[in-house]
Every structure is written in C-alpha cells, then in structure tokens.
C-alpha cells in the first residue's frame, strides 16, 4: 500500500534533524565551495583556460589520469581475484587477510607514501631486486602507479565481495545443467552479473586516485612535466604565492570530482536496477 510523505509526520525530529543537516552541510561544504567559485570568478574565462591548459598543467593531467587509470585497471583485475578467493575459497588466516584488505583505508597516506618509497627505492626490500632488471619504480611515474594501486585496492574488493556472496548457487547450477563448462559459466553467467559492481569499484578507485596526494608525493620524484601530479602542482603554485593559478587548477579538479561523483551514482543506480530486475520477487520474499 503506498504511504508517501504526509503533511504531519508521526516520528518526531524531522525539522530538527534536517535543519541540523542542512546547516552543517551549508557551512562546511556549500559555503566554502562557493568561496572557491567566488575566488575563481576573479579570473576571466580566457585566463582560466590559459592556466588550465598550460604545458605543465596538461602534463600533470596526463600523469594523474594515466597513473590512476593504470592503477584502477590493476586493481580491477587483482581485486576480482582477491574478492573471489575471499568469498569462495577456504584458506588458513582468511579472517586476518580479509581485515587487512582495509589497511589502505586505515593507514595514513603519508605513512603509505614513505613506506612504499623506501620499499621501492634502489636499496629497498623490493627495489633492490628490481633495479638489476632495469626496472626503476621509485621516483618515476611507475612509482605513482604503485602508490595509487595501494590506495585504490580496497574499493574493488569491497564492492565486489557482497555481490559475489549474493550470487545464488542456483544460477551456476542451472548453467552447469545446461551443459556449460566452468569457464563458460564464469564468462557468460558470473562475469555479466559482477560487471556493474566491478565497474563501480573501478570508478571509485579511479576517482580516489585522481585526488590522491599524500601517498604519491614521496614516491613520485615530482619532476615537472614527467612525474608531477595535479594536486602537487596546486601545492607548488601555492608555495610560490600564485593563489590564482592554484585556484584555477582547483576548479578543474573540482569539476572532475563532480563528474566522477555523478558517474559513480549513475553506475550504482544502474547496478541496483539490474539487480532488482534479476530478482524481482525479492520484495515478496521479504
């Protein structure tokens, strides 16, 4: 029976809680962002465009987006495997491993940054073995990819895990009964079911990577045009008291953030509607 909002509400506190929420969000989020827009309006569109598309800025976008994309792809591939083994395969110490997946959420980014830089430096535990092979990771764009892979790791795993848990064994059984091999079942039945979640996790990891600062700067080397990410360029401009330049780049980053947020929302909506279609009777069972 439909029972949408009524004029007078039974549960108390609607006005108070919504009021608190709106005031808090306005003061903390909307007003400051409006401040940024206000500051940016001191620039003409042409000036803004000139700063936003300067050679150094364009190079920083390439580094940021390229590394983020690569890291998100690595995470999508390995994240799928990790999520799969965590849900499906028994192995000793599984609980510890499962908890450890959240480490990048819990470990401060600066700590991750200095640790990865030390590990992959020429004399580090890992770098020591890579250097003779001619692979330099620390202080190169490859280092940025390593740091962003670390940062984005939980996103794909944590979005996929509940979806894999929810796959009903019946659909795999049905595929097998219809003569599909395990590989066919995986590619034709399971992967399409997991795809929206995989894409959502990928997008979340990608979006987090674009804005990441703390873990990257220690390992990146930070050479302008080669290994300088956009957030670092903003800091560099600030340190030279070029507030206007920093603001112009911040506006670019903010627009990208909005686009990513919309993309994540759209993806989640898409995934949910697919899921809903797939098990339309779920409501009745409840």
């Amino acid at each position: 029976m439909p029972r949408p909002a009524s004029g007078r509400r039974l549960l108390p506190g609607f006005g108070l809680s919504l009021g608190c929420t709106l005031v808090y969000l306005s003061l903390l989020i909307l007003l400051p962002l409006a401040g940024l827009a206000f500051k940016a309006s001191e620039l003409s569109l042409a000036q803004w465009w000139a700063i936003a598309t300067s050679e150094r800025a364009l190079a920083s976008y390439r580094v940021t987006f390229g590394a983020s994309l690569l890291a998100a792809m690595i995470n999508a591939f390995f994240g799928l495997i990790v999520a799969w083994i965590l849900v499906r395969y028994p192995f000793p110490g599984k609980r510890v491993v499962d908890s450890l997946v959240d480490l990048p959420f819990a470990l401060p980014t600066a700590v991750a940054g200095i640790t990865l830089a030390t590990l992959y430096a020429g004399n580090g535990w890992i770098g020591r073995h890579l250097e003779p092979l001619g692979v330099k990771v620390a202080f190169t764009p490859l280092g940025i990819v390593v740091a962003l892979t670390f940062i984005g790791l939980p996103f794909v795993v944590r979005t996929l895990q509940p979806v894999i848990e929810d796959i009903e064994p019946e659909i795999e059984e049905a595929a097998a009964m219809l003569g599909a091999s395990r590989w066919q079942t995986f590619t034709r039945v399971l992967l399409p079911a997991l795809f929206p979640a995989l894409l959502t996790g990928f997008t979340l990891a990608f979006s987090r990577s674009i804005g990441e600062y703390g873990s990257v700067i220690f390992i990146a080397g930070n050479l302008p045009l080669i290994s300088e990410i956009t957030p670092l360029l903003i800091i560099a401009k600030l340190e030279q008291y070029d507030v206007v330049g920093a603001t112009a780049l911040a506006v670019v980053m903010l627009i990208i953030s909005f686009v990513m947020l919309l993309a994540v929302n759209a993806l989640q909506w898409w995934a949910a509607s697919r899921l809903h279609r797939r098990s339309g009777s779920a409501d009745e069972r409840r």
Binding site: L33, L36, G211, T230, L232, V243, T247, F258, L261
Partner: peptide
C-alpha cells in the same frame, strides 16, 4: 570525491 589538496585550498581562500 574532492581531492584533499583542493579542500585545503578552499579553506585557505
């Protein structure tokens, strides 16, 4: 979704 650096800058502004 917003980069921490941008957040810092916003309040600096």
């Amino acid at each position: 979704a917003v980069s921490p650096v941008v957040v810092g800058l916003v309040f600096l502004l």
